[in-house]
Design a protein around this nucleic acid. Structure first.
Length: 467
RNA sequence: GGCCUCGUCGUCUAGCCUGGUCUAGGACAUCGCCCUUUCACGGCGGUAACACGGGUUCGAAUCCCGUCGAGGCUGCCA
């Protein structure tokens, strides 16, 4: 047995990269890197009908975006000859056989079993008859499973412990449509063997497939790798995470302005907890802390709020130049009008206010003139006329001393506040005039960012409401 | 239906293996207070959980059994 750690992820390119795959990939990656092993990416595209090139590209792009770089890459459609060799070997030795039952026959059988409350399985009488489909006849290749023996399949799952299945409940399950068309169970087993995979770390949905894989390994004389089944990521209702409760593809998260480091951090803590109670951990820290033995057993609901919080933490932590760059790139990618220079200017006032980059949409007034309702200018408990009075004074101050010296401007506005009876009476209408919103950063800072000219224009425009 | 897995605050979890230190700890969310021109940030504080029932034991979140609940698989998909 090869003692080098080699792990793999085996996505099928039948949809956009799901967050569950990203998590599985991440745990495999952690384990590989922690143990100086290899991380293999294998595209499982044996289903020609459903596999699409665009999804393969999506897998590659998003895995890279997350920083999960693989050491080796394979594509099952390039490996047909290898599977064929093993399938023929099984056929020749009688460990596999052609089943020529029609789909209708099989359907009837399983219906009968369901009503009779039996285990659903197909014990095929074509076994050992050495049949072959005639031209035009359809059939499938099945593994010959001994359904009489009391043959328990026992394996050890590193997170779940000893797991026992009864092999006679499996029936003669299918492994290939033809020697050139392996089915999932066959191709995984062959590839994991050929690629010398030491640990199979995959989602819990594969737990029930494991005995089938072990049976194929036995038939082929392969060693069994170590198995680790990860707890599922769940929707709010505890079903397997799916579309319709929110974003589930990595691409969607990316498009909403989540940072890869936040996604990695969040995913790394879903189903795993390092020692200590830290929650904000870098990729390297997570890798260093990783141990298969600490993986959880129970599924975990995907908590979008906590991801948002973490993403906000990463945004706040970033140095301003770096943040400005990423925000600008994001905005450009989303077709939001800005400019590299103006994005740099707004960093100080949005960095603590964004949880995801797409939240920048709430700050559109930094880039264009706001629209708002006249009554918004009214400060609580006061007559709207007082707002206009204050704005007229603000206008004078801004025209006279500009907006660049913030502490001076703030001092003057504070002085004005004392004269007319309260800061709110000055700052509230000023804020509304230049942002059109009831909540925003300090209007003095906003004024500086948009500049004297625009500040004056906006205050004047607000004053027009008076007429 | 059959097989398999799982079950600590609303959510993610610590603790469980090696019973007492658990009047169950942390984080997100939520609520309240402080800061304050609004929002955000920040600071402080609160509410909130061992699924249930038996057993073992001086003592159980921790060990055993059962019940209930949830999920996964049950494809000529992966």
């Amino acid at each position: 047995m090869n003692s080098k750690v080699r792990v793999r992820i085996a996505p099928s390119p039948t949809g956009f990269v799901h967050i569950g795959l990203a998590r599985t990939a991440l745990f495999n990656y952690f384990f590989a890197k922690k143990n100086k092993g290899d991380f293999v990416l294998r595209i499982e595209d044996t289903d020609k009908e459903r596999s699409k090139k665009e999804f393969e590209e999506d897998i590659i792009n998003n895995l890279k975006w997350l920083g999960l770089n693989w050491d080796e890459f394979y594509r099952q459609s390039d490996r047909v000859d290898i599977y064929k060799k093993y399938i023929e070997q099984l056929l020749k030795s009688g460990k596999a056989f052609w089943c020529l039952h029609t789909e209708e026959e099989l359907e009837q059988e399983s219906e009968r079993q369901y009503t009779a409350k039996e285990a659903p399985r197909h014990i095929c009488e074509h076994k050992r008859k050495n049949l072959k489909p005639e031209s035009g006849q359809s059939g499938v290749i099945r593994l010959a499973v001994d359904s009489n023996a009391d043959n328990a399949i026992i394996f050890n799952d590193i997170v779940r412990g000893k797991i026992k299945f009864d092999s006679k409940l499996l029936g003669d399950f299918s492994i290939a449509k033809s020697p050139e068309e392996p089915l999932y169970h066959m191709s995984v087993v062959v590839d994991d063997y050929e690629m010398k995979i030491s640990h199979v770390i995959r989602g819990e949905e594969h737990l029930a497939n494991t005995p089938k894989h072990i049976l194929i390994q036995e038939a082929l004389g392969f060693d069994t790798p170590a198995y680790v089944h990860l707890p599922l990521i769940l929707n709010k209702d505890r079903s397997k995470l799916s579309k319709r409760h929110g974003a589930v593809s990595v691409g969607e998260f990316r498009g909403q302005g989540y940072l890869p480091e936040a996604i990695i951090n969040y995913l790394g803590l879903l189903g795993f907890t390092p020692k200590g109670d830290r929650e904000v951990l870098s990729f390297a820290e997570l890798t260093g802390e990783f141990e298969l033995e600490r993986i959880h057993k129970a599924g975990a609901i995907f908590d979008y709020q906590k991801l948002d919080w973490l993403n906000g933490e990463y945004i706040k932590k970033m140095n301003p130049q770096n943040f400005a760059e990423r925000l600008f790139d994001f905005m450009e990618g989303q077709g939001i009008e800005s400019g590299r220079k103006s994005v740099e200017n707004i960093v100080s006032l949005v960095q603590t206010r964004l949880r995801k980059l797409s939240d920048i949409k709430d700050f559109d007034y930094l880039f264009k003139e706001p629209e708002f309702d006249k009554n918004l200018l009214k400060w609580k408990g006061e007559d709207i006329g007082k707002s206009f009075d204050a704005l007229r004074e603000v206008l004078v101050i801004v025209e006279k001393s500009g907006v660049d010296d913030m502490s001076r401007l703030r001092d003057m506005l504070n002085g004005l506040s004392e004269n007319i009876g309260g800061k709110g009476l000055v700052f509230w209408p000023f804020r509304v005039a230049i942002t059109g919103k009831e909540s925003s950063p300090d209007p003095v800072e906003v004024a500086k960012v948009i500049g004297k000219e625009k500040t004056i224009a906006r205050v004047k425009k607000a004053l027009n409401f008076e007429k």
